[in-house]
Computed example of a mutant assay.
Amino acid sequence: MKVTVEMDLTPKEARELLGLPDLQPLQDAMVARMQENMEQAAARLDPEDLVKAWMPLGQQGLEQLQRFLFGAAGAAAAGRTGGTRSGEGS
């Protein structure tokens, strides 16, 4: 025997029927807190702080990156690609 029961309930009514807690107040509080945090973060948004966070060594890190890139470009221009020095591996 097969029995089908169809119920037309709102989500709130279904939670009450099943005895589940209403989490809407908690969700509203969390969304409000997240919005507040995001607004505070946007107010503090400073490009200089972002650069400091992304590049902890600041100017020194940028200079190291530039030296690395210039060194790699110079080595490629001199034909020293592949990790061998001139005179080695021949």
Rank of each mutant, 00 (worst) to 15 (best):
A43W: 00
R80Y: 00
A29Q: 11
L69S: 09
Q59T: 06
T10I: 01
E48Y: 10
K12F: 06
V5W: 08
Q66V: 04
L20F: 15
K2W: 03
G79C: 08
P25M: 07
T4H: 15
T10H: 07
D28W: 00
L26I: 11
L20N: 02
R44Q: 14
D22M: 14
A29N: 13
R80M: 07
G74I: 00
K12M: 04
M7Q: 06
Q59E: 13
M38H: 07
V51Q: 13
L9V: 04
A77K: 08
M1N: 15
D46I: 00
P47D: 08
T10E: 14
P11M: 10
N37G: 03
P47M: 06
L62S: 11
A73E: 13
M55V: 15
L20I: 07
A43P: 00
R33V: 04
Q35N: 13
M7C: 15
T84I: 08
A53E: 12
L20S: 03
D28N: 15
D28K: 06
L26M: 04
Q27Y: 14
R44E: 11
L26W: 10
E63D: 13
L20D: 04
A32Y: 04
T10K: 06
D46C: 08
Q64S: 08
R85C: 01
G71D: 09
R15A: 02
T84C: 09
V31N: 14
S90K: 05
T10R: 06
A14R: 15
G61Q: 05
M1E: 12
S90N: 09
G71V: 01
N37H: 15
P25Q: 06
K52D: 15
E88D: 11
E88Y: 01
P25F: 10
G87L: 01
K2R: 14
Q60D: 13
M30W: 09
E88C: 01
G61C: 12
M38W: 06
M55K: 03
D28T: 05
A14K: 02
A78E: 14
G19K: 05
R80H: 05
G71N: 10
E63Y: 01
V31L: 08
M30R: 05
A76F: 13
D49M: 07
V31I: 14
E39D: 13
D22A: 09
D49H: 10
E63C: 00
L57Y: 04
F68K: 05
A77I: 02
Q64G: 06
G89Q: 14
E16Q: 14
M38T: 04
E88A: 07
T10V: 13
L62H: 05
A76C: 05
M1W: 13
Q59S: 15
L18H: 03
L62T: 05
A53D: 06
D22R: 10
M30D: 05
G74D: 12
G61N: 10
R15L: 06
M1Y: 15
D46E: 12
K12G: 11
G82D: 14
A76G: 10
Q35L: 13
A41S: 05
Q66C: 02
M30V: 05
G71S: 12
Q24K: 15
Q60R: 11
L17Q: 06
E16I: 12
S86D: 12
S86Y: 13
M7N: 12
